[in-house]
Design a protein around this nucleic acid. Structure first.
Lengths: 141, 141
DNA sequence: TTATGTGCAAAACATTTGCAGGAGT
DNA sequence: ACTCCTGCAAATGTTTTGCACATAA
């Protein structure tokens, strides 16, 4: 094998490869459990713990992004460049939003706090196309 | 009694009053469990479920804010006007950050998506004063 | 009086972890 | 071989919920 470059000591296992491939194949921002469902179609015996462990490791090594957006579950994203998100308050779906990243607000923030600023994230709330049309379905999606 | 105006049908109970008072007495952004601990000093027999139920109700009625920031627990804030937050990646503490709210980015977002924009929130990540000084304590706080 | 709220305990979720066996290098 | 990794299952941590009793209006 060998297709992706992993941090030292991190082995390239089938499980890792498939998890990354499946995550990269969607533009949604799946939860760990959704990734588990996708991966299980190819590796039926994989454990949920393995999925959690690897998503966590990949996020730590910068291979993927762990999104700490609203809602009860964490979500994951194979697109690692900084970008903002929007969450539908009706169905919970999370989409990317194509908006220039306001890097200058890190500087503004730096002068407004004694924290050492590392980064920022913007999350919009709104109602998505599907939920907004068709007589306000309470939450069909 | 009677001190705060509640939505119709919502009764003013001792528990609600104390929860709101305790939350308003701090500038931190306590988790439900931290609110429970504070309230329990005055109402030792209150149940954790009651605290959760009431924080949820108050958030729905706009009396308080439920913060869906990073980390594993939701946090609550008695200051309801829109403002941004910063979270310490070392100790998990969440502070307000005094930065003018960029209302115009809602308009920018509106033209970049088909969602109907309701609001936005900015969360900074950084290292707080206590964690930043003193030879990088891994997470003493 | 009566609908709403509370305490308690159990349930429901999301996530993490211990461990014995399995697999990459 | 020697670590590191996986599957499984149990444990943990957070939040929700059912129900009998209590209480605000």
């Amino acid at each position: 094998m060998e297709m992706i470059d992993l941090p030292p000591k991190m082995r390239l296992t089938t499980q890792r490869q498939v998890i990354l491939e499946e995550l990269a194949s969607v533009t949604s921002h799946p939860t760990a459990n959704e990734v588990y469902d996708m991966v299980r179609r190819r590796l039926p015996r994989i454990g949920l713990g393995t999925v959690y462990r690897n998503l966590e490791l990949m996020a730590e090594s910068g291979l993927i992004l762990k999104l700490e957006v609203g809602g009860t579950q964490k979500r994951f994203d194979a697109t690692t460049d900084l970008h903002y998100h929007i969450r539908c308050t009706a169905c919970g779906k999370v989409d990317d939003i194509k908006l220039p990243v306001q890097q200058e607000i890190n500087k503004m923030a730096a002068s407004a706090t004694d924290y050492q600023i590392l980064s920022h994230h913007v999350e919009f709330s709104g109602v998505c196309g599907s939920c907004g049309s068709a007589a306000e379905p309470s939450s069909i999606n």
